[in-house]
Design a protein around this nucleic acid. Sequence first.
DNA 1: CGCAGAATTGATACATCTCAAGCTGGGTGG
DNA 2: CCACCCAGCTTGAGATGTATCAATTCTGCG
Lengths: 246, 246
Amino acid sequence: MQDLKPTSQDCSDCPIRHRAVCARCEQDELKLLEEIKYYRSFEAGQTVIWQGDKMEFVASVVTGIASLTQTMEDGRRQMVGLLLPSDFVGRPGREHAAYDVVATTNLVMCCFRRRPFEQLMITTPHIAERLLQMTLDELDAAREWMLLLGRKTAREKIASLLAIIAQRTAALDQAVTNNSLSFDLPLTREAMADYLGLTLETVSRQISALKKDGVIHLEGKRAVTIPDMNMLLDEAGDDSDGGMLA
Amino acid sequence: MQDLKPTSQDCSDCPIRHRAVCARCEQDELKLLEEIKYYRSFEAGQTVIWQGDKMEFVASVVTGIASLTQTMEDGRRQMVGLLLPSDFVGRPGREHAAYDVVATTNLVMCCFRRRPFEQLMITTPHIAERLLQMTLDELDAAREWMLLLGRKTAREKIASLLAIIAQRTAALDQAVTNNSLSFDLPLTREAMADYLGLTLETVSRQISALKKDGVIHLEGKRAVTIPDMNMLLDEAGDDSDGGMLA
DNA sequence: CGCAGAATTGATACATCTCAAGCTGGGTGG
DNA sequence: CCACCCAGCTTGAGATGTATCAATTCTGCG
């Protein structure tokens, strides 16, 4: 419920302009979206939406990272999505949220009131088209994750997660030097555990092991350097191409 | 590559007419689809498409069951989708198959040549709309499965799978008597293992255990009766509503 | 009949979880 | 400015669920 430093009201210089659900819209279509949009900010750790809540809006992540998690009655938790800038939150036509949405870092979202957005989807094919494409991509990512959850070892899971974060953040900010690359882990050990279907102790142990084996370097708890991306991908157990789908 | 007893050429008396990707189409739109469609049949065990194959078509499952599986270099396999009648196979805009598609029972598919289908999607919003809806449903199902793979015990996994098959088949053919219900398992123990991220031995043991505990009855290896659906759902660890999304 | 694929069952190994004890670093109040 | 504090993290020792390896037993079928 934190509030908002409206980053920019103007879609044309929005950082996710060309990747988000609005990516294919023309100027006049953006105008319509601007009329129903508003920004919201959240601090790391805040819950954006609770499972079962009424959904008043759908949204795009502008900056920061959010996570989608499911919880069982006895408290077991599984993260089912990691939302990076440009990713879409919410399902048109759905009244109630199916998952918890939590800000894992400070977060800015570009929200659209749900009803008007659903209306726009009908009159503006470019939005529905892009949403279909993004949903298909997410489905692929979810299936990739099913392989990880069902069949990979703890070490492979950690390596896979690091590889994905490395690649997705590298695609945004360019922190690539020679061919090693660095980034800050945006997740706590516990969040990583929830994502990977492990306990936080196992996550910690495997990170230590990868560090000892020289696959990664750590500066403090969060700053990661990957000296050799291929070595990391090897550890991840993916096909040589890194399993990239995008 | 088996061939075809074209079940029916006429969409209007197709068994999946109201649930498949064509569900929202009008008569004239169906006409356009009929021009680019053809049926193909496969025997249980046959591979419909290999991962990496060129995709010449997209398709709907008409009768039977197909599975989507991923395989790692060393042979570990994970099923990432179970395709029942009306489910859609293939991704518009994608050249090459991302997963193996295998007929787990005898199978009839209604195929559309990919290029013309992609064209139709642009001119016929009803198709794209329905496909978006179906893809969102699949994404929800995939996320439900992520919870299962990441956090459920072997026993819960088996119970969940049985519950899903029971509910989805009950939705098609009505084999409900009083409030117990019966069906034939369409999967081998190995296929179940691939779906659940277990070994086939563990699957076998847990099925035996559920049988011993009276949660299910078995007639031979494949015919299952569920005396009390609520008991099964309890064992599955889902929320009381059974986690139904459809 | 006898074979082959599928399933069950048993014994053991091992990866990961669980429980428990310390560590570490950044922020805060005395 | 220092000492303390606490969330986040690491490490250890032991328990446990599932995998692995191996031997039978089913079941349908040529």
